[in-house]
Design a protein around this nucleic acid. Sequence first.
DNA 1: GTCTATAATTGGATAGAC
DNA 2: GTCTATCCAATTATAGAC
Lengths: 209, 209
Amino acid sequence: MSVPQRTEPREALGGKAEAILAAAERAFLAGGYGAVSMDAIAREAGVSKATVYAHFSDKEELFGAVIAAVSERFGGFSALELDPRDIECSLITIANRFLALIMSPESIAVNRIIIGEVTRFPVLGAVFWEAGPERVRTQIETFLRRAAEIGSLAIDDARLAAEQFVSLVRGEIHLRRLLRLGPEGDAANLAVAAESAVETFLRAFRPAG
Amino acid sequence: MSVPQRTEPREALGGKAEAILAAAERAFLAGGYGAVSMDAIAREAGVSKATVYAHFSDKEELFGAVIAAVSERFGGFSALELDPRDIECSLITIANRFLALIMSPESIAVNRIIIGEVTRFPVLGAVFWEAGPERVRTQIETFLRRAAEIGSLAIDDARLAAEQFVSLVRGEIHLRRLLRLGPEGDAANLAVAAESAVETFLRAFRPAG
DNA sequence: GTCTATAATTGGATAGAC
DNA sequence: GTCTATCCAATTATAGAC
């Protein structure tokens, strides 16, 4: 399977190709790789199967294109504009953004499919990691470093602290959602989870005195 | 799909049934549900396909039997004999046991397949959660509660603290392993991860003074 | 590029003999 | 229970007309 590193924006593709990619994305994210047939994708896109094959050489390439496109969409996490002086408020904002990102139905679906298919398509792991978790952690790491420099936090290793922050915020709700346990949209619960995580993080990293 | 709640021990099954179940486990854990054919399982078990169907009514039932058997094998986590007075040492022991459990190739394979197939087989999520993460967290929660009672830790909500401990220890290495990033057996790295997590946890929950 | 129709293969499941 | 041989449905992929 080949995963295009930079996908053309969808507008640059022909109308049919765009429709096929969108249909494939919906189908794959909902059903996984193996359970979705090219027939179903063609039907959902409103084209014939031959047209699908005119744009994507085979099922694997189509799948790769979908994963690349979806992964790209998760690069939008930013923490740069937050004020490291108001540390608790900023961390809670970051935690809430992070949770909103990883708990969205789309993100959950992507996680499921990548984890489930990485044995068959080993490339997926790296593609997803670099487009998703790695970028997010870098953003948070940068914020923590700034906070440490001005004395808002007592952090020795900013990279490790960012890892731990992310892990604390993710908590067990993410895995529970991946396993389809518990409700889907529970926004109140997410806010509570974010606050608990930040509280513990601050107990560990707040400057002494 | 039906997931038998208590599986008969394998010795109680006939030799062929045992071989089939073992072969199916190897195949499913290595390749996932969709990518493994009944032909392949029969071949690996050294029997004909008809014999497979004589013991398991269809592919789904065989899969359910595999998942139930594997899940049962993850109930062995215990922290009851550890001494809550030597809190740092005990927590490091727990962290190392936990990491050894969740980072084992078998555990990783089970995680992948359950997360990947939970959309197709919604039962899997609950079966796995209760047999795995839930049991482990309960054990750790009990230990933390004992430690809090004797003043080794300053914990308000033991359940939440256990969640956070588990999340900190799991860190990002677990997801990286799920995605097939990084080396497989890196024991030294696991020990470092365990220590970092415990260090942060203790900074947050060590009694003041 | 796009369609209809079809080839070629795979894979789940079964019939029937022993 | 076990095997060989087979059925049948689904699925990937392509041929050929327009």
